[in-house]
């Protein structure tokens, strides 16, 4: 057990847990951020993606102890931002959401990508989202949505 402090969706939080606990479990069970999904538990699908210091990680394999002092944003926190609004509109307009289980992770991956590269090419989008599996959409509309968000949200990233 250890006391671990970090920022979660813009709030300072502290929790006493084993440092090897999966960040995913802490977010879903202790903080009730169930927008973070578990699709595989093996780092492969990206459904559990969150941002740590603006970068995407898969929370199912992040040990809690490594987030000490860091800034974590889940889909719940991200959804309150202007950038999410731009991405959200683009995803809706392109039809990029089907069952929605991959969607929080896809949006986090898009945010992380646009953070690094505000004007990605199709190829760069594909690389940026390559760790997020979607079984419904065939990705086509997701790729288009990210592209369109990067245009419409010019200056935001």
């Amino acid at each position: 057990m250890a006391k671990i402090k970090f920022t979660l969706n813009n709030k300072q939080v502290e929790i006493e847990k084993s440092p090897t606990a999966r960040l995913l479990d802490i977010l879903r069970e202790d903080f009730d951020f169930t927008g973070v999904k578990e699709g595989c538990g093996e780092g492969e699908c990206g459904a559990c993606a969150v941002l740590i210091n603006d970068q995407i990680v898969n929370s199912c394999i992040v040990p809690l102890g490594t987030v000490e002092g860091k800034n974590i944003v889940t889909i719940e926190g991200f959804s309150k931002t202007k950038r999410h609004e731009v991405l959200r509109n683009a995803f809706e307009e392109e039809g990029a959401v089907q069952c929605g289980f991959c969607t929080p992770g896809m949006l986090i991956a898009s945010e992380s990508l646009l953070n690094k590269n505000p004007h990605p090419t199709d190829e760069e989008i594909k690389i940026g989202l390559s760790g997020n599996l979607c079984r419904c959409t065939g990705y086509n509309m997701i790729i288009k949505a990210v592209k369109s968000a990067s245009k419409k949200g010019d200056g935001l990233w």
Binding site: T20, E38, I61, V62, P63
Partner: peptide
């Protein structure tokens, strides 16, 4: 932890089953 957390993964919301104590060096 991208290898270790998976190799030792357990049921969701339980701790990974490490057979040794862990030092986090990240």
């Amino acid at each position: 932890g991208t290898d270790l957390m998976i190799q030792n993964r357990a049921w969701s919301n339980t701790l990974p089953k490490f057979n040794k104590d862990i030092l986090l060096v990240f």
